[in-house]
């Protein structure tokens, strides 16, 4: 428990949470390591966890018939991986695999959901952080949607 608490308290994503809140979360936390090429999850599977990346990189990808597997985004240190665990139907929208040896902190989805449902203050703090990440990623995605480097017609 001590080790996972330390892991969590060093995550920028969780900066500002109280020791008591971190302590509650640490119950649902474990360290995880992925070797290069490891598939973390597959599109359509049950989404029951998320990760805070510490080292290494993970790609989010999807299979496009005729074009093979396309990478939609690369996530690196300090990034949050996975938010499909937050809402029904709790299924991954994309697949994820480790590009290189990747160290992460893994949190249990149902456990954290249950925590948030019972402790709204912790729930608010976590949701606020998730929303910030989602907004940043959506804005970056919108910029990419503009396809700025394309050949002008």
């Amino acid at each position: 428990m001590e080790a996972t608490y330390e892991l969590l308290s060093s995550q920028p994503f969780l900066a500002g949470l109280t020791p008591a809140q971190l302590d509650k979360l640490s119950y649902w936390t474990r360290k995880s390591t992925f070797h290069a090429g490891t598939r973390l999850f597959e599109e359509g599977q049950r989404a029951d966890r998320f990760w805070l990346l510490r080292e290494g990189h993970v790609t989010l990808d999807t299979h496009v018939p005729g074009q093979g597997t396309q990478i939609v985004e690369t996530l690196g240190p300090h990034a949050v991986l996975g938010w499909s665990w937050l809402f029904p139907p709790y299924r991954w929208h994309f697949s994820a695999s480790a590009v290189e040896t990747t160290l992460a902190v893994e949190l249990d989805g149902p456990g954290v959901r249950d925590l948030c449902a019972r402790d709204h203050e912790l729930g608010y703090e976590l949701m606020r952080r998730f929303v910030e990440v989602v907004v940043q990623r959506m804005q970056a995605t919108r910029v990419r949607l503009l396809d700025l480097y394309r050949m002008p017609s």
């Binding site: 790609t59 074009q67 300090h78």
Partner: peptide
């Protein structure tokens, strides 16, 4: 280096260049 789109043969980063700046 980052690109907007890539297949699995690309081992580099995928995402807008501003997200690389963030890191």
């Amino acid at each position: 280096v980052t690109v907007d789109r890539a297949d699995m043969s690309w081992t580099g980063h995928v995402g807008v260049v501003t997200t690389v700046l963030g890191a």
